Amino acid sequence: MSTDPTPSSGADTPVPTCYRHPGRETYVRCTRCDRYICPECMRDAAVGHQCVECVAEGNKGVRQARTRLGARSAADATPVVTYSLIGLCVLAYVAELVSTRVVDEFAMFGGQDRFGQLIPGLGVAGGEWYRMITAMFLHQPLSAGGFALTHILFNMWALWALGPALERELGRLRFFTLYMVAGFGGSVLTYLVDPGQVGVGASGAIFGLFAAFFVIGRRMGGDVRPIVFLLVLNLVITFSASSAISWEAHIGGMVTGAVMAVAYAYAPAARRTIVNVAAPAIVLAALIVLVAVKTSQLTSGAA
């Protein structure tokens, strides 16, 4: 810190002022540029204080710490994407409680009735592709009985438990992409196997997070036994429980999430950006092609 002694009184003696706030008197100068700075503009430095501009200029040359998978490292960063996804699911559930039409209009529905007949203009085959995305944020309404409330509670607990760690390691954009593409993969397999099924839930995306947690854990040399146990337990429940559980969504999300995680975790550092962009684009394109082919089969069959 550089300071000037208080000048002797005199009419011709100028009073130094902050270079950013000319109306504020000060006798403290930036140790880097030597300009006068007021308390608001002071930033602690190794020696004395620096001004805001000098601190910003110095930070440009500092490399930001990153995780092993290339995300910007910030141990105390709030998992904004995780909390936002939870919030969207909860808001959608509240909307379901207010109006049953929410499920009717936004649930996953291929476009076939229970007899296998195509319903013109309705469902994914009728052009309502958005259902494959919106269904990811809906859950069984209370009117469905059974495990309706458990459905959303388990999915939100899993998202809260797995999301923050994955979001910190992958970064917000890659984590969001993983979640959405995995959920879409679950909807696609449901559409391919049973286009007459009506389905809701974030389970496809959640199973994608399970798979990603395992893949990334293995890549980083962590203990993956807890996630393996949880994944196996949920697969057992999926195939042993009633038909109310869509195994197609679970398996589709898990496989898609695993593929995405392998690309993220094992991408060479020198080509990480290219792989991070290409992998989800290729997976998404493949899923869209499958949907288009299935739609063509359904509509041509109906004709």
Rank of each mutant, 00 (worst) to 15 (best):
T3G: 03
D4T: 10
P5E: 04
T6A: 06
T6N: 06
P7W: 12
P7A: 08
P14T: 04
P14A: 06
T17Q: 13
C18A: 14
H21A: 10
P22A: 14
E25S: 13
T26M: 13
Y27P: 00
Y27M: 08
T31L: 04
T31V: 15
T31K: 13
T31C: 11
C33V: 13
C33E: 14
R35K: 15
R35V: 14
Y36I: 12
Y36P: 06
P39A: 01
R43D: 15
G48P: 15
C51N: 01
V52A: 04
V52H: 00
E53G: 05
Q64G: 01
A65T: 09
A65H: 13
R66N: 04
T67C: 15
T67W: 15
T67V: 13
R68V: 03
L69Q: 15
S73Q: 10
A75F: 06
A75S: 10
A75M: 06
D76M: 04
P79S: 10
V80W: 10
V80L: 11
V81M: 13
I86T: 05
I86H: 03
G87V: 07
L88I: 09
C89G: 03
V90P: 07
S99A: 06
D104A: 11
D104Q: 06
A107F: 01
M108D: 07
D113W: 09
L118V: 09
P120G: 00
G121S: 05
G121I: 00
G121L: 00
L122Q: 05
L122P: 01
G126E: 03
W129S: 05
R131K: 03
M132T: 03
L138A: 07
A144V: 06
F147A: 11
A148M: 04
T150P: 09
I152C: 03
M156K: 07
W157F: 09
L162K: 04
E167K: 11
E167W: 11
R168G: 03
R168I: 08
L170V: 09
L170W: 14
G171R: 10
R172H: 13
R172T: 08
F175T: 02
F175C: 08
F176C: 10
Y179K: 02
M180N: 03
F184W: 12
F184S: 02
S187N: 10
L189T: 09
Y191I: 08
Y191E: 02
L192T: 04
D194T: 12
V200K: 01
V200G: 11
G201M: 05
F207W: 07
G208R: 06
A212N: 09
F213W: 12
M220S: 14
V224G: 07
P226A: 06
I227K: 04
L231S: 12
L231M: 14
L231V: 11
T238M: 13
S240Q: 11
A241L: 11
I245K: 11
I245V: 15
I245Q: 06
I245F: 15
W247C: 14
H250G: 01
H250R: 13
H250E: 12
I251F: 13
T256R: 02
G257M: 08
A261L: 08
V262A: 14
A269W: 15
A270W: 14
R271N: 14
T273P: 00
I274L: 15
V275M: 14
A278C: 01
A279E: 12
V283Y: 02
A286V: 01
A286R: 14
L287W: 03
V289E: 08
A292P: 14
A292N: 11
T295Q: 07
T299K: 02
T299N: 12
S300H: 09
G301C: 08
A303K: 07
